[in-house]
Design a protein around this nucleic acid. Sequence first.
DNA 1: GGAGCAAGACGAGACGTTGCGACTCGCGAG
DNA 2: CTCGCGAGTCGCAACGTCTCGTCTTGCTCC
Lengths: 196, 196
Amino acid sequence: MKTPNPARRSEQSRQAILSAAFDLVVESGYAKLTVEAIAARAGVGKQTIYRWWPSKGAVFVDAVLAVTGDEKGHLALPDTGDLGADLRVVLRAIVDEYNDPRLDTMSRAMTIEALNDPGINTEITERIMGPHLEATRDRLRSAQRAGQVAEDADLDVAVELLYGPIYHRWMLRTAPLTHEYADTVAEFALRALRAT
Amino acid sequence: MKTPNPARRSEQSRQAILSAAFDLVVESGYAKLTVEAIAARAGVGKQTIYRWWPSKGAVFVDAVLAVTGDEKGHLALPDTGDLGADLRVVLRAIVDEYNDPRLDTMSRAMTIEALNDPGINTEITERIMGPHLEATRDRLRSAQRAGQVAEDADLDVAVELLYGPIYHRWMLRTAPLTHEYADTVAEFALRALRAT
DNA sequence: GGAGCAAGACGAGACGTTGCGACTCGCGAG
DNA sequence: CTCGCGAGTCGCAACGTCTCGTCTTGCTCC
């Protein structure tokens, strides 16, 4: 069967598979994640995995989304009116996340998967990164209206100006990610974006 | 033997292995790179590879270094006195590199390997990225002396401000990398860095 | 100083192991 | 009675170890 009937799908098995996949990555790293291990841990036949997911990476992405992604509510950045303060809060939070070994492991695994498979790449960027980037763009647009950001500033690039440096340092491990660093990046971005 | 005698190592085999590894990645992508394929292509026994390299990734990194890395001469950025123009030239060149399918493939492969193996990560960042980042820092320091960049600007972060956004967009494929984009990033960075 | 020999790196490939992904079984729920 | 399920088997590909016989290298002994 190319198309099994989703109505008959076992929700229990689905969740067991996703949480098994997630736990295995956290415990042993993504390199050691195998379909057979997921099936064994979840108490599930391998075929049940192959029936519903096209690849190991897809299972993993869904697992991450199931844990982190209650993306129903449109997320938004804080908007106190002080753009600098708001950005510092957000960048510091991101730095903290990347410093959490669990999230670090997950993020590197996702990045690898995104690099390997363009399909998963779009999946990740759209469903995980996308909303966050969009929320940031919204906050910048608000600042633009308030006259804190130049009228003609390209907000897509502005977002990358905020997250790019942090991403860069995280990926390459060229230096530790500290709150001070987050503040410096925020400061630079503010200078680059401010009107006039 | 834990430590084979390097003096007796076959230089011919070494080069055959490296160029075989490089060619295979270019032709079929990193995912399909196998030790057996390298050995077959190079006309070499598998053991000869396992004797001298700890992993497939290490072979690959060496292969890249052998091709790109005549890093003897200390490389430097153009310094015409016009920081903005120089940065635009450099960022446009980088954008062009990432748009070359061959280099794109190689870079993604390296990134994957760096994410998987911290040892290879430092290898790559130090031997490949390092000199480039350092050259950029040098150029910015020169601009700092010329009063085009604020005295107290953190140049390590400044470098990331330049490359981070491009890296971010390249990795996530959120939008195409164009010359116009390179110019915008350079413009933002200039605004962020300039004195007063 | 040249002949002979042992060490060891080499090419080739067999071997057991692991994981993939397709497949086959009853079983049991809808 | 249909069809998704857990369980497990199968062939395949690649890994990393190993064992061959070959060839190169450097040392020894006459």
